[in-house]
Design a protein around this nucleic acid. Sequence first.
DNA 1: TTGAAAGCGCTAACAC
DNA 2: GTGTTAGCGCTTTCAA
Lengths: 324, 324
Amino acid sequence: MKDVASAAGVALKTVSRVVNGEPGVHPVTAERVRAAIDRLGYSRNESARMLRRGRTATIGLVIGDVADPFYSGLSRAVEDIVIEHGCLLLSGSSGEEPGRERELVETFCARRVDGLIVVPAGEDHTYLRPELEAGTPVIFADRPPGAGIDVDTVLADNVGGAVRAVRHLMGHGHHRIAFLGDAPEIFTAAERLKGYREAMGGLYDERLVSMRPPSLEGVRAALARMAALDGPPSALFTGNGRYTVTALRALAGRRVALVGFDDFELADLLDPKVSVVAQDPASMGRVAAELLFRRLRGDAGPPQHVELPVRLVARGSGELPPPA
Amino acid sequence: MKDVASAAGVALKTVSRVVNGEPGVHPVTAERVRAAIDRLGYSRNESARMLRRGRTATIGLVIGDVADPFYSGLSRAVEDIVIEHGCLLLSGSSGEEPGRERELVETFCARRVDGLIVVPAGEDHTYLRPELEAGTPVIFADRPPGAGIDVDTVLADNVGGAVRAVRHLMGHGHHRIAFLGDAPEIFTAAERLKGYREAMGGLYDERLVSMRPPSLEGVRAALARMAALDGPPSALFTGNGRYTVTALRALAGRRVALVGFDDFELADLLDPKVSVVAQDPASMGRVAAELLFRRLRGDAGPPQHVELPVRLVARGSGELPPPA
DNA sequence: TTGAAAGCGCTAACAC
DNA sequence: GTGTTAGCGCTTTCAA
């Protein structure tokens, strides 16, 4: 900027004014400055600007894994809103490890991101307290923070979605409905189990529930175990997208009534087409990012808790009747 | 840092030494400083550090769209390597728009990223020249830069993959093989067309080629047009993952021999299972990031051009015979 | 082993 | 309209 100034024969501050489009610069002078900028290939050093202004125009996003379509859909939506607001996105995948989640959050904070959107992996977020007290807005998406931290959240209607899935299967004649879900430590898995239980009511049988990380062998074993029961399940409710796919692989073509939580590409190309309870990762990202920018604009109201609706998409697998 | 210094009763520089783990600080002093840091909840301001050191420990990644599994797989791999090197990733989706690609790159450069990995959307990258001359390493992945820019590239063996796909179909008795690909302005699409042409040899018939953005209607129309030909195609080669899925939808269950470029989740759950030419987005990301860090470590050799192998995965659809 | 001073490149506040 | 000055929070250099 100094070089540009002397090249254009003006003071440094005038260059700053031109670069920032501030008013009060004579058009002729401004033109001269711009010429010097082009000639020297100058571009403003944003690190210096950040330091001076105390704002980084950067948002931090912590998710489980960008390579997972749920998270990448959410990421893209967040990114679009962030760019719209003239900011950039620093993002990282926790791999669902609480330690890495924390490291990422702390690194982002050391970089003084203006705000954070976090899909937490861990259960304890007290480490965020200093940052929150310093006024950094933080939004939790998909899962809430651990006890003692009260911040904005954007969650899906997990319980309601599970209830709808189970009722849908019941409506098609099923009474023995199995639930295959992720480990109950994972918030969404626990919520969906809650909805399943609620909808099953008196028909609830814990032998029809399997909660663990989705491995093909594990799912196969669980299905085999349940099939050997006195009253084997006639339908399946799978607790997330990964689980649905794994269950379909484990079923190996057997036509079993199934509703999955989470929509996925190609659900409509399988046979039977897969019925799902769909949530919209993009709108979760959008809502979280918009809420964040509202906070950055100064909205200091009490923590908001948004619950996003889910919708049942009947495609065929959820409408299969029980075996005769 | 000043506050920590006075709280610990030392000079600012001593705090700096402790924070950076520099040697030559008395353990007792260091302990006192650390106590003050904890008490005050201090964390180093990375913006200031970046400004002073002239390094941002940040890598910029420009891709087409994080929500596309190819790009998100690549992203994740890049991210892992970047984090391993103590850096963070600033990433953005160009939406395949050259203008947005350029904006992202320039914004990243203004932030003085230490290096860039770009999957280009545009054809002209002369705008990168100042940055390259300033010594910022840039790696192009998946597609090469436009004319006049000679930098490191990491590309897949697009031509070879297409040749393999076509020969595979020929090996199963097909002579009339259609190619459905993206617009030929897209490098990978053009390369795959080249491979297709080469493998078709004398059997090449331009009426069996359709190159345009993959819309369901477009693909349907192209298939209908080709089916009405004198010699209709008995097999399909689709030019990328999106295209394969769109073609499968357009086929609506008709069993047609098909090989697709790019693997995709659930390819093995469809009926018939889909044969593909698979590339590995994660290794593309890894190789690009590793090359970048080699450059950052000072490797100043001539531009490298890595070609990643692809492999044919026969699952069933590519082995269907021609209709009798 | 510790500290003082300069300055990275910019913007904010205030002259002129 | 334009310029001057101070200082953001750190690291670098040099001195004690």
